[in-house]
Write a protein that binds this DNA or RNA. Structure first.
Lengths: 191, 191, 191, 191
DNA sequence: AATGAATGAGGGTTCATTCAT
DNA sequence: AATGAATGAACCCTCATTCAT
């Protein structure tokens, strides 16, 4: 009757989408604050919906956590695209630092992700985004002669996994981890 | 009623010690085989004792797992002492490889340790041993000019943590992780 | 506000009727295939309507199942009327066999009916039809001297209930059940 | 300390056995009174034990119900052995009547059994006992010329299933069911 | 010192039904 | 009349730990 392209349907769907977002947001906050102790009904309450709604959008606790993880990785990819990419020669470094900062601000959530998914790596939609972003970063830095020519996206994944673990368990200063990763353990020959 | 001298007592203590060892061995095997699914009564059964006995020796599941972890680290320290130490210039490298091999052969156990203790690092008795061994390794390699002068035991801990995570979650080829850790990401200038 | 004549109205009613039929058909198929595991939303999906529509026509799951059951009994009554009735002296036997065949082809649905309604007997509209049909059958067979004079519709109901259970749980060969029901357990005297 | 042949162990085991019996008894009473509404924690409470204990003895709700069903069948078998067997010529009839009475006194429990196990027939240990008892009954009655020569245990099973359903759903007078089962539907010729 | 039966809080998930649109 | 997202009570089962024997 009014907006041609917006049938009555849309309204409902928009609400549903908003609920999904609310749940995700609530879950993220709760996991950040209370870690693994968070239960599904709590998430529902915090989001202002029933448990059923949580389960409608995320078929299992694991799926919810995966979605949270993916969201976080999406944001990191966004950062890689918008910021790191414009700093050839040190894009990868900036990327690693950003990851470090984000993870360090969210250790409990990381622990939940690790405990639930077995890994902290992106596994859903975000994976492709991230892969592409990091790929570009590497190419640009290599073009600038800043990083070794044989470095692959897989390598960076692996290192980020290590970085993530370092932060999560607090086994050391993560900035030092990045430093070592960049320069290596070996003593450099003169010059 | 009571046996005159100490024999009975001794006998008992020896039995207790043997039980402790049995439980530890059974636990290690079970965690290796079935990961986190292993329950305390199962451990008891496999060890041929009652649950109560398991709890007598290890006050909690966590304690049992810590003991298993420590045992493994003790063995690694032993290897560092007896083998790596005799290869100045590449002792640390050998150490890292050995750790990689041991962990790679035992991913499920590592996952249990991580899930339970929050880290894969030694926390009990083995910690001191390991610290000392690694310390020596570093010193010797540094003396040989093989590794950077500012490397500390803490750094190695941290890297081993990263290596451990890499192996546990299978996020990449752990030999490559070691390679990168040694040489760094940066491209090396000519010469 | 109101459509002048009846067309629009008719159209709507016809649609509604068609929806009811669709739902019923979908439900019958699904219960036949998946038994009690079928959920209301699944029925809706299979029928190509929303859950709300299912509930408009059948106020509860139980009501839906009752409707399915009644439909089936209506068909059986139809068979009694059109076929069995023309075979005086063995009409009841034919009837029992037909019931057996129908139920045997639909054990899962029968289980659902039993679990939901507490019985497999018709309870709605079909009851009257069936009662009348069976009544005629009995009368005709009795007239032919084929069955005992004191047999009532209630008796047949009861036996069909037993037959139904026999088939549903597979506790034996239902044809034998019918045979025993006809001839009894007692040994017949000479002649 | 006291009874020579009763080591400390026995005491514990006896207690466990008593608990098992208590749970069974409580379950039977509750199912009798409240049918399917009974939950595991309620059974535990009524038995004066924790849920865990219930689950130790009966690994699932279904197992508990199966045990209750078997117990009841065991009692029926006992009756067959001690009473029916001494009435050649009418043993089977007495048996059917007894089954009818027992089931009629316990419709709710029967409904639970049916809903849970899919059938009301004995499936565990009681099955063998019952089979043997009924077998003897049949043989003796046949020897007395009271029942048809081709009657098998399976036939009786099947009829008891039908009888059970009749009683459970109240689809008619179960005594009449027995009467019909014995005499058959067919009219008997003169003499 | 050893045993193992008992405990019981805890938690993820399902699904019939409602109701705003 | 139709839609389908939302609801939330209900429920079974697990398993680390305790403690009477």
């Amino acid at each position: 009757m009014s907006t041609p392209s917006t049938p009555t349907h849309r309204k409902t769907r928009a609400d549903a989408e908003r609920n999904r977002a609310r749940v995700l947001k609530a879950a993220r906050r709760l996991f950040h604050e209370h870690g693994d102790a968070v239960q599904m009904p709590e998430v529902a309450r915090a989001a202002g919906v029933g448990v059923g709604t949580v389960y409608r959008h995320f078929p299992s606790r694991q799926a919810l956590i995966a979605a949270v993880a993916d969201q976080r990785f999406g944001e990191i990819a966004e950062y890689a695209r918008t910021t790191c990419l414009h700093e050839p020669g040190r894009g990868l470094l900036l990327y690693l630092r950003h990851v470090g900062e984000v993870l360090a601000a969210d250790q409990r959530l990381s622990a939940v992700i690790e405990a639930t998914l077995g890994a902290t790596a992106p596994q859903g939609e975000a994976r492709a985004q991230l892969e592409e972003a990091v790929s570009s970063l590497i190419a640009r830095d290599q073009a600038a002669g800043a990083i070794r020519a044989d470095l692959t996206v897989g390598d960076v994944y692996m290192l980020v996994g290590g970085l993530s673990a370092t932060i999560r368990v607090g086994s050391g200063d993560w900035r030092r981890f990045i430093e070592l990763a960049c320069d290596g353990l070996r003593s450099r020959g003169p010059r």
